[in-house]
Write a protein that binds this DNA or RNA. Structure first.
Lengths: 338, 338
DNA sequence: CTGTTAGCGCATTCAA
DNA sequence: TTGAATGCGCTAACAG
């Protein structure tokens, strides 16, 4: 007698001398089955080497137990720890995680949203700052937003206080005596960009320093933007003794640009980043930056997702806020400039 | 008349005045359906807002069109470009990619292998160096190995010539006049570790330099290992003018250890890494290292996977070999030591 | 080229 | 507590 390639619930039922319904119950809702029946079923399962076909189960239950984590740009190591947190929470709850790369491309974003309609996934954790207009009118699938905010949409969110974090970063520079502080922002069409800019302004205001638009340039979080914008400032002859970048990547680009002009960090210019990515501590000099508890944020986002999926869209929209922390390393120093 | 929450193929069939089979064909194998019938079906699809339930489709076809990419440690940015390549090839072919974190933990590895038995995925792309013994006897799911090798298993593989790459790296150091060259290896129980060590030995041999076991220490690719092992060598008073680490992470750790002893790179000691990760070029000094075409490797691995899934386990085991390239930056310099 | 029919494997009624 | 029967949505024979 040869064993079936993929024994099914029927084979188990036959061997255990019960019905398929009982096998199904014994496996999915053990409490609804008598002790010794359950034992017999489990023995048959083991004997036959039965593995439930989760594809069929998902089909029947209309739930895939899969969640998509959609990020801006997958090649940013920033997301790795987030993913790790999401994956851990998912793994523990029997969920799988699919990672999606939005690349600021409407077609790709749409594709991942559609994946829920096609039942590949039950919901999405968004780490992007906007949705294509073409989607705004559709009925959206279960969503959780992590570290971002999508204008006009009130969604369950895991966030940090970006303005407060930026305020702390800039205040650190002010306390070191800096007065002419450049800010390379994120995209100003999105919350991440405006909130950090807001913190920058508030810090200056509190210190009684006028806001100088010449010292503020709009970036997009990328290394190349950080480099190009800093070079632009230097070319235009802007004078400054400190620079606050809205991401470590841009801080990195800025440092490269400064070095290429023979400007030393932190001797001539202090630099603060945002994110505390892995590289931040390895740079020369190690970067002062804002740390976010990425792993915990990922876990919380997944927890929110699971909750939403279980409660079938309950009323209150949960907002989970995590603290940030300024990590002071060696890229910032007292201002020597009068 | 209200629209169904999730219109199915039957609704489309009714509206288009055809059978469900025709709708199915019109969508999955358009060439098997007459032009105008197809048009009518597509109109109905659009009118109704029908989205195929891929869960049901996968269930019926017994294929999930999902592949798992199982890596050693997800927090290593090295894998991001690989993932990107895999995802691109998958996206283009209508496949999804699930990323799994092995963490050198048998339970986790087993879990991801089981995911195929449970029909979550059709196969796995492995970037790990071993499988738990408990699995060796089982019938394994479709596998592709990328950049690694699993002892005793002859699997479709995308690889680079690690020995040749290491040979090139060490030869570079030899040409700079170095004679006492440390090698921090990968795990010597696995191919990645032994192959690179082999290249190191061959390079020394060709230069007529005796192999000195005191200069070779076994690491595990991690930053902390690089640091600790280098400190160990220094503590033991080993003298060397160059160091070849089997990963950038370990090179990073080594540089940190050297700096902490006041040893400058590359003035006092030249350092070569392996992988050309993002940080390599940003370090101070920028790291000389071995570059691997990660994105292409990811694409090739996915292509091999798809081929395997389509051809239902054909006979010849494809081996795809990619070239590596020594990227010379500033962490290596001529030897000043006699 | 198209329709009819029959399941895929499982979870869930409804009775017993 | 258990079994018989039903159908999720779709695709794949098989006829016509």
């Amino acid at each position: 007698m040869t064993m079936a390639e993929h024994p099914n619930i029927k084979a188990v039922a036959d061997m255990a001398g019960v019905s398929t319904a009982t096998v199904s119950r014994a496996l999915s809702r053990p409490e609804k089955v008598r002790e010794d029946t359950r034992r017999r079923v489990l023995e048959a399962v083991a004997a036959i080497g039965f593995v439930p076909n989760d594809q069929a189960r998902a089909f029947r239950r209309r739930a895939s137990h899969t969640v998509i984590l959609l990020v801006r740009d997958i090649s940013n190591p920033f997301y790795l720890d987030i993913y790790k947190g999401v994956e851990e929470a998912a793994f523990a709850a029997g969920y799988k995680v699919l990672m999606g790369d939005a690349r600021d491309d409407d077609r790709r974003i749409r594709h991942y949203i559609d994946a829920v309609r096609e039942r590949h996934a039950d919901g999405l954790i968004l780490m992007i700052g906007r949705l294509p207009d073409s989607l705004r009118n559709d009925r959206l699938p279960p969503l959780v937003v992590a570290l971002e905010a999508i204008a006009g949409l009130d969604l369950p969110t895991v966030r940090v206080d970006n303005a407060a974090a930026a305020f702390e970063a800039v205040t650190h520079l002010l306390q070191l005596g800096h007065r002419r502080i450049v800010h390379i922002t994120g995209p100003l069409g999105e919350h991440l960009g405006t909130a950090r800019l807001e913190g920058y302004r508030r810090a200056l205001e509190q210190a009684g320093i006028a806001y100088d638009p010449d010292l503020v340039v709009e970036g997009d979080f990328s290394l190349s933007a950080g480099r190009a914008l800093t070079l632009g400032l230097l070319d235009r002859g802007r004078r400054f003794t400190a620079l606050f970048a809205a991401s470590d990547q841009m801080a990195l680009g800025a440092i490269g640009a400064l070095k290429s002009h023979g400007i030393q960090v932190p001797r001539d210019v202090s630099v603060v980043g945002f994110d505390d990515t892995l590289v931040a501590g390895m740079l020369d000099p190690p970067l002062t930056t804002i740390h976010q508890p990425r792993r915990e944020i990922g876990q919380a986002a997944m927890a929110l997702m699971i909750r939403q999926l279980k409660k079938s869209r309950s009323a209150p929209v949960p907002q989970h806020c995590f603290p940030t922390r300024l990590v002071i390393r060696s890229s910032t120093a007292p201002c020597h400039d009068p």
